[in-house]
Nucleic acid binder design. Structure first.
Lengths: 111, 111
DNA sequence: CCGCATTACCTTGCAATGCAAGGTATCGTG
DNA sequence: CACGATACCTTGCATTGCAAGGTAATGCGG
């Protein structure tokens, strides 16, 4: 999948996944990596940004196999942002589809 | 419209517009600026990239009001690329919509 | 004829973000 | 006790959109 296309969408995707239940970065990468490529070098800075915006909050959970996991939970603000991003996403897709669709036959295009 | 979302899509949009007829950068900005914001500082480097990839070729046309216009015409390679990009776009949208849709209830998620 | 708006071209520097590469630490198993 | 898997993280680079600024041609009003 083209790298540039993902820019600005991964936030939305991560928030959407977290809306289905708390998770931690390492797991998020594995989940998202199935459909769209995404690597650790992407997710960790991204989670920091989400936390800096107060869209998620964290808590540690000890693991039976490996170091403690830093779980992320959506905040109320995060859920609101998720809704806003969903709307932006739909508007964006509509806009692009409009450009991609065949000429809209505007009357004044016959100069 | 969010800046980051546009990354990787503007190429596709410009090629799609050119597929409907030759145009020049200044006009492309005005056309695209209706739906999605786009500025001159974006379009000129972009057109250079498209030309460097040989997806478009140029020819000058003198204008009755202002300096000569540098028209861009889609090449065969450009048209092929446009088709490829359209497919990538659809795949990309599908992938994101999949993530945004409610939990798909995979059996093995009950560990 | 001169300045100004409009058209039309272009470049520089910055900001945002995805990613490869590399680093650290913990746990269970052989 | 070495190793793989799990899980965390950072640094530096590449790409790309954009604001800001610069150049030049044309026609019009004063």
């Amino acid at each position: 999948m083209k790298t540039q296309l993902k820019k600005g969408v991964l936030d939305l995707c991560v928030l959407a996944v977290l809306d289905r239940g708390d998770s931690y970065a390492y797991e998020l990468v594995n989940q998202l990596a199935q459909g769209m490529q995404i690597s650790e070098g992407t997710i960790y800075p991204l989670m920091r940004r989400l936390q800096a915006e107060a869209w998620v909050e964290t808590y540690l959970v000890e693991s039976s196999a490996g170091p403690s996991r830093k779980y992320y939970r959506l905040t109320a603000a995060g859920r609101a942002e998720l809704d806003a991003m969903r709307r932006e996403w739909r508007d964006f897709v509509s806009e692009v589809e409009l450009v991609l669709s065949p000429a809209p036959q505007t009357e004044e295009a016959l100069s």
